[in-house]
Nucleic acid binder design. Structure first.
Lengths: 311, 311
DNA sequence: TGTTTCAATAGATAGAATCTATCAGGAGGC
DNA sequence: GCCTCCTGATAGATTCTATCTATTGAAACA
């Protein structure tokens, strides 16, 4: 099998048509280049160079192979360039997953600022249910996941990004809409719409409703936060939606109103998850810090933890 | 600089995602593959593989580089294929030069048979004047030249293909056309048309005419054998044209007739020339033998020498 | 808890790439 | 014609490196 070095020598000789000068070009001595080219010819079983004291000429095969060798060397050079580019932190593409209940509002909130400060960083985004995304993350299909914590998998690590209360969403004319802050006990016997199973919020809201004596609507399970909101607007019941979602979608229209729940309100802890031992673990930690900063500016009403070592 | 071997290991690992099996695939032991991959990462300065006991995952850069590495390996494989192909004699393309006074009839005579017996052999043909073609041959722009011998250049070798007499070509109604064989002395004071300077035949016919007392037409010098023939047909004079040309072009029409000259007739020796030490010298010798055989069949009236070592 | 599996590591070894020094042949100058 | 310079090939020594065997340490599994 020919070596890259031999190809380099052939390319040099093709350029200079002169052994000594080719050797200089390749930063080796002339005997090295001579023997390696002879070795290359031996391995390929073809004469590449016509040697004479007065003239060095490549054979037609030699020309052809030199041409191809140059292409190979160029491609290898590109590989090195790819590596060099990737070496810089927060460059290149990250394959991230976002749980559906975050996708519609989290990325739009942080990506513009992030793109401004780190223009070389791109995201390949995949939405889905937590279980599926965690599986993909473990398998290597994703590098990074935004979802609700805690995540209890031995080979994954997580760091919190923000603490997001759930807010009561009701039709404008609903009696509870008149309260500025709603007490959990006020939800007794109310009908609550929630997401289909598989979402973290499904279980969380189910538990909460059982505690306060509210009734989960048996007839309907939403597939997204948007459908829940629309069902509330149609008077099918109340719902509990994440504060940042409310901020980005509910606050913009008049059909439904959102009210905070009195502490201890149900809430979710949103964080970033990656594989323990991921090559980019350091980058991910840094990225978490950057995202927390962005959130502090863009969503001051949300509680963002101090930076910490990923746990 | 990464080595091809390291790329091969990366490709194997990308395929199996398992060190031991990748090592098997690459026909080395697992520690070898491990250390070489680590070395590759070190050289590129990038982590390519996420190692954990339970799972092996390529990083995104790892994927990208593995993809490119596979392409490089494929291209190197192609280089080996090119060499393998070139190794078979009388395969591939030969860059040949043919002097203008041969081009119109020599190749059409031999190429059909040659193509039948050696379908993988192709010609890239360049016509020109002898001097220019010899220069190109020496510089490496051509590999092989068909022209009149002798050729006296130290770095070239030649082998004869056939001995080709020149024939007298005259208008049908010309008095000399009545002789079956024409004596050279009969050309005394006749007007002979010949080619422009630069052709071997220009000098050869000039010498011959001086010897027999014929007159070279001062007003006209042909640029090709075809124009000479046409000038003869128009009654501008007589001409001396090569026997195989006569056979292929003159014999087909009625306007001019060709008559052999009584010995010692002027003649030219046609041969093949290549560079001393050409990679394909052996092929060229073989080719000469094949061409001589074809000529013995296709042009039995022509004298073809026995095969010999190229001189 | 013991067993198996996996990748990393250590140390030895054979092979390869490179170097310095030198040779042999041809070109060009005098 | 002879000498010198220049070319590429060759010889031999040396350093590097790719590879091997043997082993370790850690996780997964039963």
């Amino acid at each position: 099998m020919p070596t890259l070095q031999q190809m380099r020598y052939l390319a040099a000789l093709a350029e200079t048509l002169h052994f000594r000068r080719a050797a200089e070009l390749a930063h080796v001595t002339q005997p090295t280049l001579s023997t390696q080219l002879r070795e290359l010819e031996l391995r390929l079983g073809v004469q590449l160079v016509e040697r004479s004291r007065s003239r060095v000429i490549l054979t037609p095969v030699g020309e052809e192979i030199a041409r191809r060798a140059r292409a190979v060397l160029r491609d290898v050079e590109e590989i090195r360039a790819v590596a060099r580019f990737a070496r810089q932190p927060l460059h290149g593409t990250m394959k991230v997953g976002v749980v559906q209940t975050l996708g519609s509002y989290l990325l739009p909130l942080i990506v513009p600022d992030l793109h401004r400060s780190h223009p070389e960083l791109g995201f390949y985004v995949r939405e889905g249910l937590p279980e599926a995304l965690l599986g993909r993350l473990e398998q290597g299909g994703l590098e990074l996941l935004f979802c609700a914590l805690p995540v209890n998998r031995a080979d994954l690590v997580a760091t919190p990004l923000f603490h997001e209360p759930l807010m009561l969403v009701a039709p404008e004319e609903h009696p509870l809409a008149r309260h500025e802050v709603v007490d959990a006990s006020a939800l007794k016997d109310q009908t609550i719409l929630t997401l289909e199973p598989g979402h973290r919020m499904h279980d969380q809201i189910g538990d909460f409703c059982r505690d306060v004596g509210a009734r989960i609507s048996p007839d309907y399970e939403g597939t997204s936060l948007d459908t829940l909101r629309q069902m509330v607007a149609m008077g099918m019941g109340l719902s509990l939606l994440p504060a940042l979602y409310v901020r980005s979608e509910v606050a913009r229209e008049r059909l439904v109103v959102a009210r905070p729940l009195r502490a201890p309100a149900p809430a979710r802890q949103i964080g970033m998850v990656w594989r323990k031992g991921s090559a980019r673990a350091g980058e991910f930690s840094d990225l978490a810090g950057i995202i927390r900063d962005i959130l502090r500016t863009r969503a001051p009403e949300i509680s963002v933890p101090e930076d910490e070592a990923a746990a």
